[in-house]
Design a protein around this nucleic acid. Structure first.
Length: 368
DNA sequence: AACACGGGGGG
DNA sequence: CCCCCAGTGTT
């Protein structure tokens, strides 16, 4: 920045302006200690902050709320979570996505319970040594639960800051530059409120499309607003096309209305989750091979195709149903027969709920 | 540095 | 339909 623009630029944005806005407009969220309460010295519970932050990774506030309340009711402390069966945690997480988070959540709870006496580390370094806690989450917990002056940067903050300074370098390359700006802005007092204020601002005012700049506490300092079009920031690197994968899924019911289920391996896609048997998911499907790869010999009835979009590919599964199967004692490989009435308690990812609903429309509507 | 990893809501 | 989201771990 040259001398002239330094002289004539607007005064720098300050944390105080944002905190004043936050005091008036902050959202009331289940894991949050409101600014008035925080001012009276009530500190947020590190367990609550950690649980919410892990759930909020790449996930919207709206989606997280019910899961957060359910987890807290079922496992009130990190010790309770550490002692819970992993299958229960996976089943409770089902539907939230990114299931490595649930596996790491359990590992992290065990580490805190067994290695730290049930007390979360209170530094960013200590927190980041735990499973599932990276750059963002360690900074967020350190700032929000322990009042540390940590620079919290997520997708919202990247957008706000890239607009504030009209940063034209594309993401993710611009992250170090943005992080430095965030560190400069983060105040020693109320760093947790500042972080949450930045994220609230990004979620409600400085939105990806049609930002409400007229309502923004930073609208006197925003270079993207003054000199450009805020909607053009942040600049992002081009993304690649999604390939399609195909396969078949088999819904088998026995004579007692039980469904054949399997557990997926602990690593990789949908790791540790429950599924119905399927073929491999490949670029092309061999029609003659489909029947042969069914989990057992039966009258397989085609029930249509479901589509599910993952982060990096689109999956189309042809669904087959077989009913009134006589279960052979040593029949299913690695699977088990689960009464349909228990489906709700299984760790079924959304794609598998789609498959089962396609074959048995009333499968998940039966209760209540 | 690039890739793998879910799911849902908004425009 | 496309975009994005309170990112982390692996390679």
């Amino acid at each position: 920045m040259n001398v002239k623009s330094r002289i004539y630029a607007e005064p720098q944005p300050s944390a105080g302006e944002l905190l004043a806005w936050y005091d008036r407009h902050h959202r009331d969220l289940p894991w949050r200690t409101s600014p008035p309460m925080a001012a009276k010295g009530l500190r947020a519970n590190p367990y609550h902050v950690w649980l919410s932050e892990v759930m909020l990774q790449q996930t919207t506030v709206q989606a997280v709320k019910p899961y957060f309340l359910k987890f807290l009711e079922r496992w009130p402390t990190v010790i309770d979570l550490a002692r819970a069966p992993t299958e229960d945690v996976m089943a409770a997480w089902a539907g939230l996505g990114y299931y490595a988070r649930a596996r790491n959540l359990k590992k992290c709870a065990e580490a805190v319970a067994d290695l730290h006496g049930g007390i979360f580390p209170d530094t960013q370094e200590g927190l980041q040594s735990l499973p599932g806690i990276g750059d963002y989450t360690s900074a967020a917990i350190a700032a929000i639960a322990f009042n540390r002056q940590a620079a919290v940067m997520d997708g919202n903050v990247e957008r706000v800051v890239s607009r504030l300074y009209a940063i034209d370098e594309p993401l993710p390359g611009a992250k170090p530059l943005i992080k430095a700006r965030v560190a400069d802005l983060t105040p020693a007092g109320r760093p947790g409120d500042f972080a949450q204020a930045m994220m609230d601002l990004g979620a409600t005012i400085c939105t990806p499309k049609r930002p409400a700049c007229a309502l923004c506490p930073f609208n006197g300092h925003c270079l993207a607003l003054r000199d450009h079009d805020p909607e053009q920031f942040p600049v992002k690197a081009a993304k690649k096309a999604k390939p399609v994968r195909l396969g078949a899924a088999f819904v088998a019911l026995d004579q007692q209305n039980r469904i054949l289920l399997r557990k997926r391996g602990d690593k990789g896609l949908l790791g540790g989750m429950t599924e119905v048997p399927t073929t491999e998911w490949t670029a092309r499907i061999d029609g003659d091979d489909t029947e042969a790869s069914a989990p057992l010999s039966a009258h397989w009835q085609p029930k249509g195709v479901i589509t599910h979009v993952f982060t990096h590919f689109e999956l189309r599964l042809t669904v087959f149903l077989a009913q009134s199967i006589k279960v052979q004692p040593s029949g299913a490989d690695h699977g088990w027969w689960e009464p349909l009435i228990n489906l709700e308690a299984q760790a079924l990812p959304t794609v598998m709920k789609k498959v089962i609903t396609q074959a048995i429309p009333e499968a998940f509507a039966a209760r209540r």
